[in-house]
Amino acid sequence: MKTSTFLISLLIINSSFLAGQVSIQLMGNLNPFILGGSELFLGFTYYIHTVIRDIRSAFDVDVKL
Rank of each mutant, 00 (worst) to 15 (best):
F33N: 02
G43E: 09
L10H: 01
V63S: 11
V22S: 07
S4C: 08
L30N: 01
Q21E: 06
I8K: 12
V61D: 09
L40S: 13
L65S: 12
F44I: 14
S57C: 08
F17R: 02
L65G: 11
H49M: 03
L40T: 11
I8Y: 07
L26V: 02
Y46N: 13
L26F: 04
L40H: 03
A19T: 03
A19W: 06
T50Y: 14
T45F: 07
Q21D: 09
M1G: 10
A19M: 09
N29F: 05
T3L: 14
S38G: 02
G20P: 02
R53D: 11
F6G: 07
L42A: 13
S38K: 00
E39C: 05
G20M: 05
G20D: 14
S4Y: 00
L65Y: 06
R53L: 11
V61R: 11
T50M: 15
P32T: 00
I34F: 07
L7M: 10
P32M: 01
I8G: 03
Y46C: 14
M27K: 00
R56Q: 11
T45W: 06
S38H: 04
N29I: 00
L11W: 06
L26A: 08
K2P: 08
M27C: 04
I52F: 15
N14A: 02
S9H: 05
Y46V: 12
L35D: 01
Y46L: 15
F44L: 15
K2L: 11
T45E: 05
E39Y: 03
V22R: 09
V22G: 06
G43K: 07
V63L: 15
S9K: 09
F44P: 00
K2A: 10
G37H: 00
L40M: 13
Q25M: 04
F41W: 09
S16Q: 05
G20C: 14
F33M: 02
I34Q: 00
S57Q: 13
L11C: 06
S9W: 00
F44M: 13
Y46M: 14
F17L: 15
P32K: 01
F6T: 10
F41V: 11
D62A: 10
T45R: 03
Y47V: 10
F59W: 12
V22Y: 08
Q21K: 02
T50H: 14
G37M: 04
G37Y: 01
L26Y: 03
N31A: 07
L35A: 06
H49E: 13
R53K: 12
L30C: 04
F59S: 12
S15T: 12
V22T: 06
L65C: 08
I8T: 12
T50W: 15
K2D: 14
